[in-house]
């Protein structure tokens, strides 16, 4: 079709205009698609819950359920965006962050949090170096890191659960209590601190993505690593930063998770890698990298939470949810791949 058109317009190097429209539509769908799904889910939710979907307790439970996944997504977004698919070491980063924070509770509350975050950043640096500099296979490498760090935690702490009040000295019990309370605080008695933190992290993430040179560079790296290299972008450093941000976000989620469970162990965070990836893909971030937005990711996280919520309203148990989630996940991924192929990438 396009060939015929081109041949007709011999005077100027005209391009097929039809193609542009498809592109614009796809772009629009990529930007807003997930919010359409969110609205749909709200409608469905209102129907199945008999109007209680917007009840205070339900909204609270949705937000709390997605808060941790959201925090992970705020960082994992950059890994997917940079064209490295996903980070399989998210669970162990969460666990490591939580364990280090609890272990260092004697440094005071702030000290504990800082150490926990540094632990996450450390894993980010390791991943960033091997993937950004040495070009290791991102998935296989992060899987290996997951196993290694898990081994380290288990050996050092003998596979035990860590309780902040056991570790804290007499005079530090307040810190321990403060640590536990972060996951149970409601600002104004309504909205959970976790949800606030998640939103703040998304806001920072949005700034980083849209307003900084790093975000712009990462877009080029994600689209085509070689092009980025030949545009004078220091890919190693950018990927390092991306993984460090990812490590920090996962560690934050890990700290909140440890506080929520009131204990830290190597198991904290199991399953969050898949949950976060599902939410990110739902949000329209392309697995090939270079495409996606934080707004979409938030939409993906919300959709993911609401889907779970609706499934419980329908009366499906925790277990059968997996089935629905799996099918939705595959469908979304297929849509993602398909639309990319239509755009001529893949």
């Amino acid at each position: 079709m396009s060939e015929v058109k081109k041949n007709e317009n011999t005077t100027a190097p005209k391009v097929d205009t039809r193609k542009t429209e498809i592109n614009k539509f796809t772009l629009l769908f990529n930007k807003l698609g997930i919010w359409i799904i969110v609205v749909l889910l709200i409608v469905v939710g209102l129907i199945v819950s008999g109007g209680q979907f917007f009840g205070k307790s339900n909204i609270q439970s949705i937000l709390e359920a997605v808060a941790l996944v959201g925090m992970v997504c705020a960082g994992l977004f950059y890994v997917t965006y940079s064209g490295n698919m996903t980070d399989m070491s998210v669970p162990i980063t969460m666990a490591f962050g939580g364990v280090m924070a609890v272990q260092c509770i004697n440094f005071g509350f702030v000290g504990a949090i800082v150490v926990g975050l540094l632990a996450g950043a450390l894993i980010g640096v390791i991943n960033g170096f091997m993937i950004g500099k040495m070009r290791a296979n991102a998935i296989i490498w992060t899987l290996a890191v997951n196993l290694l760090i898990s081994g380290v935690i288990r050996v050092v702490w003998q596979g035990k659960m860590l309780y902040a009040e056991d570790i804290a000295r007499e005079d530090m019990q307040d810190s321990a209590n403060l640590f536990y309370s972060i996951s149970r605080t409601y600002i104004g008695g309504v909205i959970s601190l976790m949800a606030i933190v998640m939103l703040v992290m998304f806001f920072i993430s949005w700034i980083i993505h849209t307003k900084t040179g790093f975000g712009q560079k990462l877009k080029i790296i994600g689209t085509n690593y070689e092009v980025a290299k030949f545009s004078g972008i220091n890919c190693t450093r950018q990927l390092m930063i991306a993984y460090v941000i990812n490590g920090l976000c996962s560690a934050t989620a890990g700290i909140f998770y440890a506080a929520l469970r009131k204990c830290a162990s190597y198991e904290n965070g199991t399953g969050y890698d898949f949950d976060a990836l599902t939410a990110i893909l739902l949000g329209g971030v392309s697995l090939n990298g270079g495409k996606g937005s934080i707004a979409g990711t938030i939409g993906g996280v919300l959709a993911y939470g609401m889907l779970n919520n609706i499934l419980s309203w329908v009366g499906l148990g925790t277990y059968s949810k997996y089935l629905v989630q799996g099918i939705v996940f595959l469908f979304i991924v297929w849509l993602n791949t398909y639309s990319n192929r239509k755009l001529g990438k893949a």
Binding site: Y319, Y322, L323, Q325, G326, L330
Partner: peptide
């Protein structure tokens, strides 16, 4: 890899 993550969820369910 992604497909197997999805199938993993389905199988688990």
């Amino acid at each position: 890899f992604i497909a197997s993550i999805g199938m993993q969820l389905v199988l688990r369910g």
